[in-house]
Amino acid sequence: MHHIRTRAVRGAAVAAILTLTAGVAPAHAEGYFVSSLSNFSDGDESRRWTDKNTDGTSTSVSLWSCSGAPHMSSGFRLEVWKDVFGPDEGKGSKQNTCNINYWGDLASGSYYFETQLPSGFSVSASGVRVDY
C-alpha cells in the first residue's frame, strides 16, 4: 500500500514540475511572459505580445525590484499601445511605482508598453510580468 501511495505522490510531483517548466499559464489567463528592463529611458518599448482575446482577463504589467527614474516613490508612467498599420493606438498610461497596473480586457491584437520618463532619466526593473 505504501508503495502505491509513494508512486502516486511522485507522479503528481512530476506533473507539477512539467507544468511549471513548460511555462503553462494559469487557467484564467490566456498568456503571460516574464522579462526585465535595463536602463529604459523615455519612449523605450517592451517586447510585443499577441492577445487573441480568448478570455476575459485584464491586461496587466507588473514591475518589481526597480531602480532609477527621477524618484521611485513618485514613479513614472507606462503606456500600453496596440501595434496597428499606421499610427499605433494608445490604450492609456498609468503611473507606476514598481507595482502592478491594469488596462482591462483588451481586444485581440499585438501590444507593447513604453516607458514615459523625464529627459535624461532611466529605469531598470529586475522583474517584469505581463499578463494578457
Rank of each mutant, 00 (worst) to 15 (best):
S58E: 09
S58F: 07
S58G: 08
S58D: 13
T59K: 01
T59R: 00
T59N: 00
T59L: 08
S60Y: 06
S60L: 10
S60P: 00
V61R: 12
V61D: 02
V61N: 02
S62R: 13
S62H: 11
L63V: 05
L63G: 03
L63R: 11
W64H: 04
W64L: 04
W64F: 04
W64R: 09
S65D: 11
S65F: 09
S65K: 14
S65Q: 12
C66Y: 04
C66Q: 02
C66T: 08
S67H: 07
S67Q: 12
S67D: 14
S67V: 03
G68Q: 03
G68W: 08
A69M: 10
A69Q: 05
P70E: 12
P70Y: 13
P70N: 14
H71Y: 12
H71E: 15
H71P: 00
H71R: 09
M72I: 11
M72H: 01
S73Q: 13
S73L: 11
S74D: 13
S74W: 09
S74E: 14
S74P: 05
G75C: 02
G75I: 04
G75M: 05
G75A: 04
F76P: 12
R77H: 12
R77P: 02
R77E: 15
R77W: 11
E79W: 01
V80F: 01
V80Y: 00
W81N: 05
W81Y: 10
W81M: 15
W81S: 05
K82N: 02
D83Y: 12
D83M: 06
D83R: 13
V84L: 09
V84M: 09
F85V: 13
F85A: 14
F85Y: 12
G86C: 07
G86R: 13
G86Q: 07
G86I: 11
P87M: 10
D88Y: 06
D88C: 03
E89F: 10
G90T: 14
G92D: 04
G92T: 12
G92E: 05
G92M: 06
S93F: 05
S93D: 15
S93Y: 10
K94N: 15
K94Q: 15
K94M: 15
Q95V: 15
Q95N: 15
Q95L: 15
Q95G: 14
N96Q: 14
N96A: 12
N96Y: 01
T97Q: 10
T97F: 00
T97H: 03
C98M: 09
C98L: 08
N99T: 05
N99F: 06
N99W: 07
N99K: 07
I100K: 15
I100R: 15
I100E: 14
N101W: 03
N101T: 04
W103S: 03
W103T: 00
W103P: 00
G104D: 02
G104P: 00
G104C: 02
G104H: 01
G104Y: 01
L106C: 03
A107P: 13
A107C: 04
A107K: 10
S108R: 11
S108H: 08
S108I: 01
S108L: 04
S108P: 02
S108C: 02
G109Q: 13
S110G: 01
S110P: 02
S110I: 14
Y111L: 02
Y111G: 06
Y112F: 15
Y112I: 07
Y112E: 05
Y112M: 05
Y112S: 10
F113Q: 01
F113W: 09
F113L: 06
E114S: 14
T115K: 01
T115Y: 00
T115D: 02
T115P: 08
Q116P: 01
Q116K: 11
Q116D: 04
